[in-house]
Design a protein around this nucleic acid. Structure first.
Length: 582
DNA sequence: GCCGTTTTCGGCCCGACTGTTTTCAGTCG
């Protein structure tokens, strides 16, 4: 049983308890544990009951319940709750305007158990007969039901960022004197997002109307002086908060989140005789303001080093800030090269020279050209001869270009049995080899683990590319024993990739952090299939930052000679490199 | 249900907006 499956059950218990109107802190405990399970880099099913206690948010009781789930497949307590409330009632909670109280009320008063029954009850006029519900609520719920599919979708970070930046741009023209910022999960660099959060400080009252009247607004969900919510065409929700200028820092902090981070921070404030809200830090005894305008000052007022937004996930950042041990996170400016890109030689849209010139233009001092290998027929993959001819062209161009070094590489498929898709002597004759899985994604975990371990044994594999193969919002990654594979990669000196393509971001943050803990080095690559694709590194950098990585953890922050020396082929065979004779 | 550098008991974050009200509960972030 994987962590996500465990997290789902715990979260569902939380939802059911909420409908049951249980103690809110108990509900939070289940949700915290669910979140903790979902983000843990350890497989909970591999841990003993005692080891599970070390996982934050899991105590004696939940450790036992998780153990029960792993061993029997169910938690009796969960089953009991499901006897009180049908599981389908939880669908009601996802409707805008329906929370646990309303869901319970609907079930109790009208025996409504699912969306269909709810819709029918409204159409038959039965809802407004319930005390506390009225015609407005009916209309709101009906709309929510019809838009449910549309609203359910989360969006990729890049898409949501574009939409948010367009809104900020429009608002700035309406209120040039205001400070307008993107906050929320976008500012933290989360890989997908459900809504856009925007903060304006020092803005005139007219800004709210400009926001609700923005050209892409389909419907206004809420409209107040300080807070408004809108639904954009296409289904994204956007929220605008307006804060006094003297509260800019506190508002930035508050609306950036995450929720877990903020709760911990406010708890810390209380322990120090302070109160933290979106307006500032105040002394509890006399309400005197201690900080507010500057975000860094909020953290300092609480005895903490300022914490970068990407780390604010409640994963140890507050303890690290307290000890002044926050990592100096890698930045886009640290990157000197890019080791994964395609040209028209396989499935890229730009030719070799165009890609090289584009790389020069974005400031790279080295790149690797890594077209696909033969198995990927639909991507026009190269066989040995094709790969070597391509390498010759890359080297010829390299001789002509100043200011950038081109490495002749390949993105070599790892075949289902773990063999590499091209012969060893061909791989040896290249400057760099990145290996990746593009087929047979659904192998059993044991088989996939063996496959990857075998691939890593090939001495010419330098980098394991997009190591889980996931596609965000589309496909889960393939499953394997990551600990064993990472340990083998560390032993061989193989680096793992953070692939910056917006629908991959693979490795993800928690896995990249695990890789570092396992002693691995990483690279951040664009996997560009066009000149414009080279710009994508910014997204991979966000992932690396969320993984607590520094420039030292990332090989392509190094100058070219140091970079090449750190590749596995150089580390393991310092004195000679075989040449291809066939 | 979790958690502990004042605690193994008694805490556990906070404010804005809406819709139903007759002074406020529910939802949301």
């Amino acid at each position: 049983m994987d962590n996500l499956a465990i997290a789902r059950v715990l979260a569902e218990i939380g939802d059911l308890l909420e409908i049951k109107n249980e103690n809110s802190f108990k509900i939070r405990a289940y949700r915290n544990a669910a979140d903790s399970a979902a983000h843990s880099t350890q497989r909970l099913s591999d841990l003993t009951a005692a080891q599970r206690l070390a996982v934050p948010g899991i105590g004696k009781d939940l450790s036992a319940k998780i153990g029960e789930l792993i061993e029997t497949g169910v938690i009796a307590y969960h089953q009991e709750l499901l006897r009180e409330f049908p599981a389908t009632i939880l669908d009601l909670l996802h409707l805008q305007g329906v929370g646990p109280k309303t869901a319970a009320l609907l079930y109790r008063e009208l025996n409504i158990k699912n969306l269909d029954e709810l819709e029918r009850a409204i159409r038959e006029g039965r809802l407004r007969a319930v005390k506390g519900l009225g015609p407005k609520k009916e209309a709101q719920i009906l709309r929510a039901i019809s838009e449910r599919a549309q609203l359910a979708g989360r969006r990729l970070l890049a898409e949501a960022s574009d939409a948010a930046e367009a809104i900020v741009f429009a608002l700035r023209s309406d209120a040039p004197e205001a400070t307008i910022s993107i906050v929320g999960s976008l500012r933290r660099g989360c890989e997908t997002t459900g809504d856009l959060d925007i903060l304006a400080a020092g803005a005139p009252p007219s800004l709210m109307a400009a926001f609700t009247g923005y050209r892409l607004v389909e419907r206004v969900l809420a409209h107040g002086e300080r807070k408004s919510s809108v639904l954009l065409f296409g289904g994204l929700q956007a929220d605008l908060r307006v804060a006094p200028r003297e509260s800019l820092g506190a508002a930035l902090q508050y609306f950036t989140g995450s929720k877990a981070h903020n709760i911990a921070l406010r708890d810390r404030a209380l322990q120090r005789g302070l109160k933290l809200n979106e307006y500032g830090v105040y002394r509890t005894d006399d309400d005197a303001a201690v900080a507010g305008a500057d975000e860094d000052e909020i953290y300092r007022a609480l005895g903490l080093a300022p914490i970068p937004p990407e780390l604010r996930e409640g994963r140890g950042e507050i303890q690290a800030a307290e000890r002044d041990e926050l990592p100096a996170l890698v930045t886009r400016q640290h990157l000197r090269g890019d080791l994964h890109m395609h040209t028209t030689a396989s499935d890229g849209r730009a030719d070799l020279e165009t890609m090289a010139q584009a790389a020069l233009a974005v400031g790279h001092t080295y790149i690797a050209i890594t077209d696909h290998s033969q198995s990927l027929a639909m991507a026009n993959g190269l066989d040995e001869r094709g790969a070597l001819e391509h390498a010759a062209r890359i080297r010829a161009l390299n001789d002509r270009l100043d200011g950038i070094t081109l490495l002749a590489g390949i993105e070599c498929d790892i075949r289902p049995d773990g063999r590499m898709d091209l012969a060893d002597d061909c791989l040896a004759a290249l400057d760099i080899v990145i290996a990746s899985v593009h087929s047979a994604f659904s192998q059993e975990p044991e088989q996939m683990t063996d496959r990857l371990l075998r691939a890593l044994e090939c001495p010419w594999v330098d980098i394991l590319a997009h190591p889980t193969g996931r596609l965000l919002l589309k496909r889960e990654g393939y499953r394997y024993d990551m600990d064993r594979v990472f340990d083998a990669a560390a032993r061989y000196g193989v680096a793992v990739e953070i692939n910056s393509k917006v629908d991959r971001l693979d490795l993800r943050d928690t896995h990249a952090r695990l890789a570092k803990e396992r002693g691995l080095k990483l690279v951040i690559d664009s996997d560009a299939h066009s000149a414009a694709g080279l710009e994508g590194l910014r997204w991979g950098v966000l992932v690396a930052r969320r993984a607590w990585l520094t420039a030292d953890d990332i090989l392509n922050t190094r100058p070219i000679e140091q970079f090449r020396a750190s590749l596995r082929r150089r580390r393991n065979t310092p004195s000679h490199s075989p040449t291809f004779t066939g």
